[in-house]
Structure formats: structure tokens, C-alpha cells
Simulated assay, not measured.
Amino acid sequence: MKVLVTGSNGFIGKNLIAELEATTEHEILSYDRDTDVSLLDSYCEKADFVFHLAGVNRPETEAEFMMGNFGFTSTLLATLKKHNNSCSVMISSSIQAELSNPYGESKKAGEDLLKAFSNETGADVLIYRFPNVFGKWCRPNYNSAVATFCHNITHDLPIMVNDPEVMLNLVYIDDVVKELTRALDGKENRQGNICEVPTVHTIKLGDIVTLLESFKVSREERSIPNMVDAFTKKLYSTYLSYLPEDQFSYPLKMNVDQRGSFTEIIRTPDRGQVSVNISKPGITKGNHWHHTKNEKFLVVSGTGVIRFRNLNSDKVIEYFVSGDKMEVVDIPVGYTHNIENIGESDMVTVMWVNEAFDPEIPDTYYLEV
């Protein structure tokens, strides 16, 4: 298909085009305010589907609302009619189309134009009234509080919250793009005369700020949030996309001695922590047991042996491990255990434990295997 996308350089346009180019063979006809206006005529002649995402959100004068949201829609539809093109047209409207304000009225006017176009030509039209949309590539300090907060917090700039109790209805950009690609296949989610993104998150503005600030702290604490909640997962991905380009990395505290090193990578509130252990040749580490802590060891480089002994037995169990054949070894509770580097180079082991280390309750007891 030949797919015309107006507002191609905008937030939703960029994400939609990236998805279509990555996953389909459709020819994308990109049109934005900087595109040669003469191309609109040829695009409207050959388009098989139109995503009309162009619009005005923050103009210098209120008159520009109608000019951008009604005027260009009128031009687009007139050009389609000129070429007798009755392809399906999707329009990006807003929940504010139900309100009496200049922005909402301009969006409603654009909707009405599209309905009239459908009545006249028989074209299938899809009117999407989006709530607040958030995600990567959204412009900060424009019309998205989430984008502004993400940008400011990652750049150590102040934020302003007038009313932390205000409730926001939000849709994530990936959910928007998923719905639009379904619409392209004729599987849109219609609710009467309006189409909707089925997954909407409702959350207090203050709670969003609390989460974003916790994300900032998490990099200092080598932690990641609980991702069970879908909104937290999406917001965390969004937050990371606003990091300054010179701050993608952060240092870790390496605990180094003559035996090698031990470095904690990540800790979580509910899924334990992950660390990397480096052992010098001939070095044995461990010789301890746990009541409740359980671990998984994965040697990714070098050669070693992991030994176990049940506290109630003299029998020693050995597992020989190597980065040449990676396998996970579970460390059960009630077994004293150690790991020895029996190779000639450093042995690197990725270690997971089911709970983050707490010096007040270490649950670690020394005992030779």
C-alpha cells in the first residue's frame, strides 16, 4: 500500500513511520510542514490510506488553531476529492473536541469535515480522539507534561506541579501505533462513531512525578522498579529515552581484592539482585550457606567447579562449569557451597540472588564445604 502520513515529523508520525518501515513493505508518503507543498497533490492522487496526524497544539495566536486543524484538513480532503480518491482517512483528534475552547473547537471542526467527506465520497473515515499521549520522541515543554517532566528531571532542571491530585488519562505511544497499524488492516477499535486506543492509563499527576523521581534515584542505587505494573514499565522506558547523550552510562562500585572482584549490577524490590563475580586462577570463593537466600550461578568466561554439601551430610557434590558451555547452576538453601577457578585465566560468573543484600539480615553463614 501507499500510505500518506501528514505530520510525519511529529511525535505520533515519527513513531508510526518507524514501525511501518520496520515491519511492513508499505510505501510511506511523508508530508510535514517543511515538505514541498506541490507533493501533496501527487500524494493524494496515489494514496491507498491516509493517516492525518498534522495539527496545531501550541500556536502563537488562537486563530492558528482553526487554520492548522481545520484549514489544512480542508485542503487535504479537497485534494483527495480532486483525484476522486475515496481511500480510508484516519484523523488525529482529541478528547478536547467535546469542549468549548479554541483548540477543541478546531479539532471538532476537522472531525466534521471528515464526516462530510465520508458522506460525499463513501470513504471510510476513522476519527481518533486521543487523550494525553506519552512515549519516546515527544517534545518537552510543548503540550505533554510527561515529556516535560522526563526532560527536566533527567537534565536536573526544576519542575512545576500545580495540582498533584489532578487525574490524567494517558495512552502510550506504542499502544497508539499498534492501534493505528490495526486500523490500516481494517481492524480498528470503534466505539460508535469514534475510534479509540483500547489501553488507557489513569493516574494522578503527583504519582507520575513520584515515579519519575524514583527512576532518577534508581540509577544511583543500581535498582530498577517493579515492572509488574504496565504503566510503570512504559513510563520507565519513556524516562530513559530522555537521558542526556553523555549520561547513558553510570559507574558501579567494584569490590576488589587479591582474589578478584565482586560487583553488584542491578537490584530490584521484588526479584532480587544481579552481580558479576571475577575470580583469579586458583581462587575459591564462598564456603557459606543460607536459610532463605537462593542463587543462580552462570559462568560466562573461564573454567571452574561449584561444590555443594548438605549441612546434614558429608557428601560433596561437584558441578564443573565453563564459559564454553554455559549452564545455570541453582544454589539451594541449606547447602554450603563454593566456586573455584580451576582454569588459567580469570573466571567470570554472573550471579542472581532472590533478594537484595541487607547487611542487617545477611542470611549468610560461613562453613567449609
Score class of each variant (00 low, 15 high):
178 K>T: 12
367 L>P: 01
163 D>G: 08
217 V>F: 06
264 E>L: 09
345 S>G: 03
240 L>I: 15
16 L>T: 12
115 K>H: 15
123 A>W: 09
253 K>P: 02
366 Y>I: 14
192 G>W: 08
217 V>Q: 13
161 V>C: 00
97 A>D: 01
246 D>I: 09
48 D>N: 05
115 K>G: 06
353 V>A: 07
169 N>L: 05
128 Y>N: 08
357 F>R: 02
291 H>R: 15
315 K>I: 02
366 Y>W: 07
213 E>W: 10
133 V>P: 04
166 V>C: 04
208 I>K: 00
17 I>T: 03
224 I>S: 04
112 D>S: 10
75 T>G: 07
81 K>L: 11
181 T>Y: 03
197 V>A: 07
115 K>W: 15
162 N>C: 05
348 V>H: 09
265 I>V: 12
71 G>K: 03
118 S>N: 07
229 D>H: 08
156 D>S: 12
62 E>A: 11
10 G>H: 03
60 E>C: 11
313 S>H: 13
131 P>E: 11
250 Y>H: 15
31 Y>R: 00
8 S>M: 09
119 N>E: 14
305 V>S: 07
274 V>Y: 05
331 I>Q: 06
9 N>I: 06
326 M>G: 12
29 L>I: 05
331 I>C: 13
165 E>K: 13
95 I>L: 06
277 N>M: 06
127 I>W: 02
334 G>S: 11
177 V>T: 07
159 I>F: 11
54 A>L: 03
47 A>D: 05
76 L>I: 10
359 P>T: 04
358 D>S: 08
186 G>P: 02
188 E>S: 07
201 H>Q: 10
276 V>Q: 06
18 A>Q: 10
277 N>Q: 07
270 D>W: 05
88 S>H: 12
234 K>I: 02
40 L>W: 03
37 V>D: 04
269 P>K: 09
274 V>K: 00
341 N>K: 12
113 L>W: 08
316 V>P: 00
17 I>M: 03
82 K>W: 12
231 F>C: 00
60 E>N: 14
219 R>C: 05
76 L>R: 00
334 G>D: 12
39 L>I: 08
228 V>P: 01
131 P>A: 11
102 P>Q: 09
353 V>D: 01
57 N>V: 15
102 P>S: 14
237 S>G: 09
167 M>K: 15
64 E>R: 09
133 V>E: 09
189 N>C: 07
325 K>I: 06
89 V>H: 02
306 I>P: 00
12 I>T: 14
85 N>H: 08
67 M>R: 14
132 N>C: 14
292 T>L: 13
64 E>F: 07
6 T>P: 01
349 T>L: 04
193 N>F: 04
256 V>A: 10
347 M>A: 00
141 N>R: 14
367 L>G: 00
234 K>W: 04
235 L>P: 01
46 K>Y: 05
335 Y>C: 01
261 S>T: 14
369 V>S: 00
191 Q>K: 14
135 G>H: 04
125 V>R: 00
201 H>E: 05
194 I>W: 05
349 T>I: 06
245 E>Y: 13
129 R>L: 10
111 E>A: 12
181 T>N: 01
195 C>E: 03
23 T>D: 11
327 E>L: 03
365 Y>I: 15
